[in-house]
C-alpha cells in the first residue's frame, strides 16, 4: 500500500535520511526502529508531507505523494499522530476529534450550521473506542500526558485513514500505560481494519506486536523483515541491538 524507495533528506549539511526503503502492505502492522537520531521522525514527516524529500519516491496505493502538502496527503487516506504531543490545547477533547471528523467529511468550511450538531455520532464512536468518552468535555490542554497521547491517536482516527502512522505513541508513558496503549493499537488494527505504521523505543513492545520491522541506522534502512529474521540479522545486532 505504501512504498518508500531510496528517499533522502538533508538539513544544510546534515543527512537526516539517507536512503530509506519501506514497504507497508494492506492490513499490516509495521514498525520502524532505530536509535535516537536514526531519522525515524524525519522519515514520517517526509511520508506525511511536513517535509519534502530531496531524492527518492514515496507512493501510496500506486500514486506518487512525495512533496505534496500535508493536507493533500491526509485526504488521500494517511493520518498520523506526533511524537511530541500535538493537539489543540484550548479546545475540548470532543472538539479536538471533531475538527478532524469535520475535515474528513469536507465540512470544515461550513458556516451556517452550528458545529455542535454535526459529526457528533462519529466523534463519539471514536472517543468511545479509545476510552476517552468520560473526558469529552474537558479542555485538552488540561489532560494528563498519557491521555493527551491517546487523544493524538483519536484525532488521527477522525480522518478515517486507511493508513495510520504513529510516531512513538507511547513516548513518556508508564509501563502500564504503554501496554494498555499497545493493546488499544492492536484492537484498532483488528476492528477497524487499519494498516498501521509506527515507530517505538520499547523493543519488547515492537517485537511482540509488529508483523514486519524496518530498522534504520544513521538515516539508512538496514533491513526490513519479520521480527524473527530481524533478530537474527547480523548487521542489526552490531548497529543496534548489540549496543544495548
Amino acid at each position: 500500500m505504501l512504498r518508500v524507495e531510496a528517499v533522502e533528506k538533508s538539513f544544510d549539511d546534515f543527512k537526516a535520511v539517507n536512503g530509506a526503503n519501506l514497504v507497508v502492505g494492506k492490513g499490516e502492522l509495521v514498525a520502524v526502529i532505530g536509535p535516537n537520531g536514526a531519522g525515524k521522525t524525519t522519515l514520517f514527516n517526509l511520508i506525511t508531507g511536513q517535509l519534502k524529500p530531496d531524492e527518492g519516491r514515496i507512493t501510496f496505493k500506486g500514486e506518487d505523494i512525495g512533496g505534496l502538502p500535508p493536507y493533500e496527503i491526509c485526504k488521500k487516506g494517511i493520518a498520523r499522530s506526533f511524537q511530541i504531543v500535538n493537539i489543540f490545547p484550548r479546545l475540548t477533547v470532543f472538539e479536538n476529534v471533531q475538527v478532524a471528523v469535520l475535515s474528513q467529511q469536507r465540512k470544515s468550511s461550513e458556516l451556517l450550521h452550528p458545529a455542535h450538531n454535526i459529526a457528533v455520532e462519529e466523534t463519539e464512536v471514536i472517543l468511545e473506542s479509545v476510552g476517552l468518552s468520560g473526558k469529552a468535555l474537558e479542555v485538552a490542554g488540561s489532560l494528563s500526558h498519557g491521555d493527551q497521547k491517546i487523544l493524538e491517536i483519536a484525532i488521527a482516527l477522525g480522518n478515517e485513514p486507511e493508513l495510520l502512522i504513529l510516531d512513538e505513541p507511547t513516548a513518556g508513558m508508564s509501563p502500564e500505560e504503554t501496554s494498555a496503549t499497545m493493546e488499544l493499537i492492536k484492537r484498532l488494527a483488528d476492528t477497524r481494519g487499519l494498516t498501521i505504521l509506527f515507530c517505538e523505543h520499547d523493543m519488547e513492545v515492537v517485537f511482540s506486536v509488529a508483523q514486519s520491522i524496518m530498522v534504520m541506522h544513521q538515516g539508512r534502512t538496514l533491513v526490513q523483515a519479520e521480527p524473527q529474521e530481524v533478530r537474527r540479522n547480523k548487521e542489526v545486532q552490531e548497529a543496534y541491538l548489540g549496543g544495548e
Binding site: Q50, C74, K75, F88
Partner: peptide, 10 residues
C-alpha cells in the same frame, strides 16, 4: 491552537 496539526488532519 495548532496549525501544523490542522494540516495533518487535512
Amino acid at each position: 491552537d495548532n496549525p501544523q496539526r490542522c494540516e495533518a488532519v487535512g
